[in-house]
Design a protein around this nucleic acid. Structure first.
Lengths: 243, 243
DNA sequence: GCAAAAGTGTTCCGTTTACACCCATGG
DNA sequence: CCATGGGTGTAAACGGAACACTTTTGC
């Protein structure tokens, strides 16, 4: 078994060196999502070293001994994007014995929502390319990362109906159509515009900025803000975003 | 910091010895749920050794090096209850640096649904009591186990609306009222009987066994079975159990 | 004028909710 | 005869789905 593996080892194909600060059997992998031109995109990296060399994978890293899991995920997202404030949630943990070729690594998957225009992609020492991919046009992925993305997309469909996560993907001021695009991208369906507008406005989560879009090649839309105060009051009670 | 901890160490208060088969920094903790007299109950253990000595906690154990996470959870549930077939799902992973007093342990929480009458509680070497607790009357719990249970109850409320998990808690043949009790226990609310019956029957997931309850002190109810075939067909399409 | 998206109105229909009511059985 | 749970009926209110329609803007 081990001999078999050896056959495929090339010069670049060895583990990235790890300092003593990190737990060798625990990593975080982040699903960093953003909206771009009405499409849901995820940030992927092409790695230089290790079993992942020259292949696309999620933005991940090992967890430090003195670091909470959430903190590790936050650190890795900030390091890769420069963004400091973003929505972050744990998705699930993937720990099959054979998911990583060299030894046992358990990875805790997190998903993060960022605004694409706030992102300044930072190339880590161990990546030579970092890029956004349409979730409907993914490249081949290392290890079980495809499975992780598929699981997260299913989870998003579920989640978007019960929490207003969409707002984390939008700039502070946005149009109703931009919001609708997010629901359409996540739910992978077309929604009826009049019905969507009525439904979302009836929730009282939106504040009309009394401003209009500028420089658009069509009638300018009203801009809205998300009312975090109303949301905080409502969420304890529980409510529905079903479509 | 370490000296501080020493102050509270007693004879029994030392770590349980671990063989080389186990990863020292990774455990699974299981939320083993069953229905009992219309109440949702969770199985807890009182431990003999270690930081948890003489306190109630979830049924958990370390993960073996050559064991998938799901397999570890399955092994621990079966070991504690004797049950071999049950519904098992991953909840979330808890890994704060200070959640365990001696060293860093990450725990992956799973929830399991069993039928109380199929359970034969097995006392492990390291527990001197194992018992069912009403989820609304929990004792003090070790480490972050209270937080884990609270998280799982919130997750169940969410989950029960989208998947017919209730059936995993019932015997093969059951009455509509028994099913209603599960929804009421998980959602922590009262439901209207006529409306519940109509709603659940319209889903076509139930098969009338054409049998009646025996020896009950009221009109005997019809018994139903869960139609797994119809469910398998429906679930890809997605459907709703909202109440 | 045309394209593109903003925005409003209305109808239809199934579902939800609330509640009244009768049935069967054991104590 | 009463308590307990089984089981049916129904009317009003609500909410979603579908779609026709008008408005504004830039090219």
């Amino acid at each position: 078994m081990h001999n078999n593996t050896q056959l495929f080892i090339t010069q670049v194909d060895q583990e990235e060196p790890l300092t003593d600060d990190y737990m060798k059997n625990l990593s975080v992998d982040n699903l960093i999502y953003a909206m771009d031109e009405g499409k849901l995109k995820v940030l992927l990296a092409k790695y230089k070293q290790g079993a992942a060399a020259n292949k696309w994978g999620l933005i991940g890293h090992w967890v430090k001994f003195d670091e909470d899991l959430d903190s590790a995920a936050h650190r890795v997202v900030t390091q890769a994007t420069g963004v400091k404030n973003f929505h972050l949630d744990q998705l699930a943990t993937f720990g099959n014995v054979k998911r990583y070729p060299y030894h046992r690594i358990i990875t805790v998957a997190y998903y993060a929502f960022v605004r694409k225009d706030e992102v300044n992609i930072v190339h880590g020492d161990n990546t030579h390319e970092v890029a956004w991919f349409d979730v409907k046009k993914l490249p081949d992925l290392i290890f079980d990362h495809k499975e992780i993305i598929v699981a997260s997309l299913a989870h998003l469909k579920y989640k978007v109906r019960h929490e207003p996560i969409g707002f984390s993907l939008l700039p502070e001021k946005f149009t109703l159509f931009q919001l609708q695009e997010i629901y359409e991208a996540i739910l992978d369906t077309k929604l009826d515009k009049p019905n969507f507008r009525r439904k979302i406005q009836k929730m009282n989560l939106l504040i009309n900025c009394k401003e209009k879009q500028q420089d658009v090649a069509h009638r300018a839309a009203a801009l809205f803000r998300f009312d975090i105060n109303v949301y905080e009051k409502l969420k304890d009670f529980g409510f529905n975003f079903e479509y």
